[in-house]
């Protein structure tokens, strides 16, 4: 039981590492949101599930924390993306098409 829980926590921290790497490597704000704030959600799911395996008494609190993070995380990344587009943040030159720009005109 303990080993399974700690392995899950380790997998979660590796996902954190990769998503932090994504925040550094991606070329513009939108792609940073893609790799950064959302891959961390899966990492949090793994870490908190691992802690629940290690310490079953905390499960109610961990479930509330997990549901809270799953509900709020997409909202914050959506708000940041909309603010970025509103402020005409530069997009990476690889971007092929921007329907939102066409819709505004």
């Amino acid at each position: 039981m303990e080993i399974v829980g700690s392995i899950l926590v380790l997998i979660g921290s590796l996902i954190f590492f990769l998503s932090a790497l994504g925040v550094i490597r991606m070329p513009d704000v939108y792609n940073r949101i893609q790799t950064g704030t959302k891959a961390t959600t899966l990492g949090t799911i793994f870490v908190l599930t691992g802690i629940a395996f290690l310490s079953p008494g905390w499960i109610p609190k961990l479930v509330i924390l997990l549901i809270f993070i799953i509900l709020t995380n997409p909202v914050s990344s959506h708000v940041v993306a909309r603010a970025a587009h509103f402020n005409k943040e530069p997009m990476s030159p690889l971007t092929t098409c921007d329907k939102m720009d066409e819709a505004e005109e």
Binding site: P27, T35, A39, T95
Partner: peptide, 22 residues
């Protein structure tokens, strides 16, 4: 999709093809 995006992050050359679609 996490596995897909992770594989994009770790490849030496960032291969992305972003667009805003409707």
């Amino acid at each position: 999709s996490n596995i897909d995006v992770m594989s994009r992050v770790v490849t030496p050359k960032v291969r992305i093809n972003p667009a805003i679609v409707q």
